[in-house]
Amino acid sequence: MAQSSNRTGPWLAFLVGGLIVAVAMISYFAYASRQAAPDLSQTVGVNLTLPKPPPMPDAPRLPAAPIPVPK
């Protein structure tokens, strides 16, 4: 009698087990984030007064163009 080798059994069980663990983790995080939602009914007003920056210095001027010398 020949034995049939079923090589897909362990991999299939490993894949299904991984999917079950993934679904369990996703559902736990979804449930935990819903339970830990903070109360956002308070408002905070922020009013900032920034100082005026100093003026920019003048850019350096280009030197005058030299007078062409006739040939």
Rank of each mutant, 00 (worst) to 15 (best):
W11E: 15
P54K: 01
N6M: 11
P53T: 09
A36L: 06
Y28H: 10
Q42T: 08
F29V: 02
F29P: 06
V46R: 07
V46K: 07
Q35S: 07
N6L: 03
L15G: 01
S41N: 05
Y31G: 06
S5R: 12
A30W: 06
P60S: 02
A2I: 14
V21S: 04
I20Y: 06
V23Q: 02
A22E: 11
M56N: 08
G17C: 02
R61V: 13
L62C: 00
S41I: 07
M1A: 14
V69S: 12
P66F: 04
P63W: 02
G17E: 03
G18M: 10
R61M: 10
Q42E: 02
G45T: 09
P51G: 06
Q42R: 01
W11P: 10
A37N: 09
S4C: 12
P63E: 10
A65P: 03
L40A: 04
P54A: 03
A30K: 00
P66N: 09
Y31Q: 03
L40Y: 04
L50M: 13
A22S: 07
T43N: 11
G9Q: 01
A64D: 05
I20F: 09
R61G: 09
P38C: 04
T8Q: 01
P60I: 05
S4A: 12
A64F: 06
P53L: 00
L50A: 06
P53S: 06
I20D: 08
P63M: 12
S5V: 15
